[in-house]
């Protein structure tokens, strides 16, 4: 068996999992399983929230190692599902190493949902959380517009490769400024609380939150702690964003926020 290709396949699988937002435990497990299919002396993998190290050692003590630093971080649960399936098929012998590598390399170009559907989902998310927090029809309509704003600013991130935290803060800020202006300029009798609280729910770092809990539980204190800080910092930036928006409203309209 080709050790080099096996190593590349294992590390590529790990890299896709890590960038898509899988738990560190799953990343390590997957890389280890793929490495173990070779009947060599030793196969070890170590994954952290920022990168992967993997090692293969044969009988003559010839060692193959690979290090991959992962910088990009996004959320794509579909990629996790696909990589999981590929590694399952490969480890049970249903597909060859080359097929597995090609399948993994093909994931990167894949786009799952088109932009219009995503826009629609941001609108529905904002509006329905406003509904859940006790908002009426008008509140839902305003937060639907907020959903559009959040989506449009999110597009900048994919084009310009900006810092994710700054983008989150901008989304939250723009949404709050729009809401405050809209309500105060048109003099509408709308509950600001349900609109803004409903709109920020689309920005909540759900993956970082759940993964930090699950990583800590598995004993991965390094990754779990890192994820926890990521979630906390994200929430702080979101809070700063709409806080600034509210403050602006308070200064311009004099306390009526």
């Amino acid at each position: 068996m080709d050790n080099k290709l096996l190593m590349d396949t294992a590390v590529l699988a790990g890299e896709i999992l890590l960038t898509s937002g899988a738990e560190t435990n799953r990343v390590e497990d997957t890389v280890n399983r793929i490495l173990m299919t070779s009947e060599l002396e030793k196969g070890e993998a170590l994954a952290m929230s920022t990168g992967i190290f993997a090692l293969l050692e044969d009988k003559n003590k010839v060692v193959t190692t690979s290090i991959r630093r992962v910088k990009r971080r996004e959320t794509n649960l579909n990629n996790i599902y696909i990589v999981n399936n590929i590694s399952r098929d490969f480890c049970s012998g249903k597909c060859t190493l080359l097929q597995a590598y090609d399948a993994l390399a093909g994931i990167a170009q894949r786009k799952q949902y088109n932009k219009i559907l995503l826009l629609l989902c941001f609108i529905v998310t904002s509006a329905s959380f406003t509904l859940l927090f006790g908002g009426g029809v008008f509140e839902c309509m305003v937060s639907a517009i907020n959903g559009i704003i959040i989506f449009l600013i999110g597009l900048i991130k994919t084009r310009k490769d900006m810092n994710r935290l700054i983008v989150k803060m901008l989304q939250s800020l723009a949404m709050a400024v729009f809401t405050v202006l809209f309500i105060n300029l048109l003099n509408l009798n709308i509950n600001l609380e349900t609109v803004i609280a409903g709109s920020i729910m689309a920005l909540v770092p759900g993956v970082a939150l759940t993964n930090s809990i699950r990583d800590l539980f598995h004993g991965d204190y390094l990754s779990g702690g890192a994820r926890f800080i990521e979630a906390f910092v994200s929430v702080t930036f979101i809070a700063m964003g709409f806080g600034l928006g509210l403050l602006l409203g308070k200064i311009v309209f004099g306390g009526i926020i």
């Binding site: 898509s20 959320t75 794509n76 649960l77 579909n78 990629n79 599902y81 696909i82 799952q112 949902y113 559907l117 995503l118 629609l120 989902c121 941001f122 529905v124 998310t125 329905s128 959380f129 509904l131 859940l132 729910m201 689309a202 759900g206 993956v207």
Partner: peptide, 17 residues
């Protein structure tokens, strides 16, 4: 409302169809 919210969040997070 909660069903719609979770479904649309699923699309944003890229859950398989």
């Amino acid at each position: 409302g909660s069903f719609l919210a979770v479904v649309s969040l699923s699309v944003i997070f890229g859950v398989p169809k």
